[in-house]
Design a protein around this nucleic acid. Sequence first.
DNA 1: ATTGAGTGAGTGAGTAATTACATATATTTA
DNA 2: TAAATATATGTAATTACTCACTCACTCAAT
Lengths: 173, 173
Amino acid sequence: MTEKQENILRAALELFANEGFNATSTSKVAKHAGVSEGLIFRHFGNKEGLLQAILTEGENKLKDLLVDIVMESEPKEVVRKTILMPTRVDASDYNFWKLQYKLKWELEVSNDKKMEPLIMALTNAFQKLEYSDPVMEAELLTIIVDGIGASVLKGSKLEIGQMTSFLMKKYKV
Amino acid sequence: MTEKQENILRAALELFANEGFNATSTSKVAKHAGVSEGLIFRHFGNKEGLLQAILTEGENKLKDLLVDIVMESEPKEVVRKTILMPTRVDASDYNFWKLQYKLKWELEVSNDKKMEPLIMALTNAFQKLEYSDPVMEAELLTIIVDGIGASVLKGSKLEIGQMTSFLMKKYKV
DNA sequence: ATTGAGTGAGTGAGTAATTACATATATTTA
DNA sequence: TAAATATATGTAATTACTCACTCACTCAAT
């Protein structure tokens, strides 16, 4: 991966995440990356291929967050770590996560399947903690965490630290 | 409002909601509405004006949902009605709501301000119900309801009826 | 006669993508 | 080692096409 390729990916990520995929032209990406437009197509085939390269590169970021939770055996810790997920997102990865949320609505590309292990782990944890409806509890908590993540990325006034500690108290973890 | 104007608005709403604002061309809207492209600009000035016309027309739909909750004096009813909000969305309004969610990410147009009366009402209700942190409780419930709404519109496998009755049991309302 | 709704070909500015061409870096050959 | 060849990396100009928007025009109802 040459330096120019990295420049292209970095520029594309920033523009796609902040202006949107459709609203960002390849010429804009090229200018932003300090590179000729043709180079984008040489390396990534087409605009869609450029997006895919960004997505697969960032896929591990999601996996890294999830594996730590799914591998946890202590049920209370599973819940606690899930609640804390939004706080563990590195600021340098903001653009990647923003892009994920944007694409869910712009191209109807979701990663529900990648979240399934988390839901399974949560269901299991709530069962061990003897909640009466573990399946719904797991579903609910993922909705909450997803919503908090969205708030953070949209720069909402919601104080994330306050909300997470409030949740940990509520779930007694 | 002539029939052709209504046709334009209806076509634009459907296309903007399902394909996205940027991804929908004005010529596509015109074709879909059975109207010349020029007519769109005569009536709505520009593409942005067309979007605004749709948004202001639909603004009352949100107001109608909220006023019923905010005017409620019984605290348990406030919580109950909030939880039931996603189920009360008429199927004929799906496109409008989908557009709302899409625009939040595509154009960073949010209606946080319009939700504030709901948050106030919820805070007040949780206070009367003697929850220890009514502000956070209100914030949390709006996040949950927002997330459930999003799931419904995205056609997720989440069973909305199950989730709402689960929540009503959880909140004892 | 005037007005306002409605038309559709036309406009320049972009759009994604391709092209022909240039340079740098290996790899092979003499 | 040095020259010759091949391959990867890059560019600028150009392609065919789409975009939001305009404009001169028609037509029906006052």
